[in-house]
């Protein structure tokens, strides 16, 4: 499939759900148009023959980077919870967890 594949409002609604973005109907339309325009432009790479090309995932080749298994003092709970939108009993408080896949 090529980059030029057109994106539809249905795709955009699904993506907004995945990205947890509450988009208004006209935001959906605007985004659909803008993403479609971009993907149109990005279709330039469909012209390239990339079958033999290895994907590049690392700008600088490193491997086997480790830390030793030693405790370092962490964060102060009160300082962290003070910055939380809602906290209770030393923990972060959230509304009921429903309709979430886990």
């Amino acid at each position: 499939m090529g980059v030029s594949e057109r994106i539809t409002a249905v795709d955009v609604v699904k993506v907004a759900k995945l990205a947890r973005l509450d988009l208004s109907p006209d935001a959906i339309d605007r985004t659909t148009a803008q993403l479609a325009g971009m993907l149109e432009h990005f279709a330039d790479i469909d012209a390239l023959d990339l079958d033999a090309v290895q994907p590049m995932t690392q700008p600088y080749p490193l491997q086997n980077v480790f830390r030793e298994d030693v405790i370092v003092a962490g964060l102060d709970r009160d300082e962290v919870l003070a910055a939380a939108p809602s906290a209770e009993d030393g923990r972060f408080r959230v509304p009921p967890i429903v309709g979430i896949d886990a």
């Binding site: 370092v72 962490g74 964060l75 709970r77 962290v80 009993d89 972060f92």
Partner: peptide, 30 residues
């Protein structure tokens, strides 16, 4: 580098990486 310890008081074994704070980066434990 926070302790991996069961049964401690809630949120006492935390650090920027554990909490996913902006700017925190993971480093693998050998």
């Amino acid at each position: 580098a926070s302790p991996n310890r069961f049964g401690d008081d809630a949120n006492t074994n935390i650090d920027p990486v554990t909490l996913g704070l902006p700017g925190a980066l993971p480093v693998l434990n050998r």
